[in-house]
């Protein structure tokens, strides 16, 4: 291929990636079509109606939507009926591939340096073996961050999630001081977002778009769950480290296998991080025994600046 063709091709590739990655987004007012072409009105698409008949629907109504405000703010504060979300993270399988981190960033339109999901290299004491430690928000049942919020901007829902209403947050950062797990991040300056993302209507369920002077964090992607899908970090992980599910149903899934939560915790001695703090996290860890990879493997192919993070440990 010639050079000029190449650039052209790249552009188109990016553009298709956008389509494929489902970056189609709906702004407060307007649906933004990911495919970039306007569908003429009046084109009909046949669909099966609930009573089994074929019906015709205007094709322009059939835009897939991702990261839209699916529910009212009121609903977003109450949670999804009957659910109690849990996550299980299998430390034995983590090789610091960082696919979860990038997937999360893509999903929430975060810049590279902002990580809601972090992978730390833990070494509990000088003699113990280091291990990779992916860390989401723990969505604690006794959340220290929610306790201290003066305006109910961060709140606990009945389905167990701890979410943030960025439209209400006053940016006091008290919740960041209160969180013992350094989960929350602050928008120190106006976030650099593409126009169509910046124009989106914020919902605590999507946590998009980021707003200057407010706090944000991992939200367990309740919008994905409402659509019957797993959070992006779960599906992005090549090793199936993350299991996400519902404690009421007693089921968690990593996209490939769906297992009973209680059984998994029992069989693999699941534990919660820093249990003694009394925060009662909704995230469980499976200890790093019988590991899939040697821990050093996680350092391979890392960009220099990320590799340097772990200099103190390894």
């Amino acid at each position: 291929m010639q050079n000029s063709d190449n650039t052209h091709g790249n552009e188109r590739r990016d553009f298709i990636k956008l389509t494929v990655l489902g970056a189609a987004a709906a702004a407060c007012g307007s649906a933004i079509c990911s495919c970039g072409k306007k569908e003429e009105e009046g084109k009909k698409v046949k669909l099966l109606s609930p009573d089994g008949k074929l019906v015709e629907v205007d094709s322009k109504h059939l835009k897939p939507v991702h990261k839209t405000v699916g529910v009212s703010n009121e609903e977003a504060r109450h949670g999804i009926p009957g659910r109690k979300f849990v996550m299980v993270i299998d430390l034995a399988k983590c090789g610091n591939a960082r696919k979860c981190v990038t997937a999360c960033q893509k999903m929430h339109h975060l810049p590279e340096e902002k990580e809601w999901l972090q992978v730390k290299l833990m070494m509990d004491n000088p003699e113990s073996a280091p291990y990779w430690f992916p860390k989401t928000c723990f969505h604690c049942d006794n959340p220290p961050c929610v306790k201290v919020c003066p305006v109910d901007a961060t709140f606990k829902r009945q389905d167990g999630l701890v979410l943030i209403d960025s439209d209400r947050c006053i940016g006091c950062k008290f919740c960041m001081a209160a969180c013992p797990y350094s989960t929350r991040v602050f928008n120190w300056s106006e976030p650099d977002l593409p126009e169509e993302v910046a124009g989106l209507c914020y919902s605590p369920e999507t946590s998009v778009p980021s707003k200057v002077g407010t706090v944000e964090k991992c939200d367990f992607c309740p919008d994905m769950v409402r659509a019957g899908q797993l959070p992006d970090c779960v599906t992005a992980c090549p090793n199936g480290v993350f299991y996400f599910g519902d404690e009421n149903e007693d089921v968690v899934s990593n996209g490939e296998e769906t297992v009973r939560f209680s059984q998994l915790i029992k069989d693999k001695s699941g534990y919660r991080f820093m249990e003694d703090l009394g925060t009662q996290p909704r995230v469980w860890y499976l200890p790093p025994t019988d590991r899939l990879f040697p821990v050093e493997r996680g350092l391979d192919d890392l960009p220099e600046n990320i590799k340097n993070r772990f200099n103190d440990v390894m």
């Binding site: 003066p150 305006v151 109910d152 901007a153 006053i170 008290f174 200057v212």
Partner: peptide
């Protein structure tokens, strides 16, 4: 405070636990 334009939220949505 990140958003002192929203100080009135302290009185609109007060949370006594904080």
């Amino acid at each position: 405070i990140g958003r002192f334009d929203r100080m009135h939220h302290l009185f609109l949505y007060p949370r006594l636990q904080s």
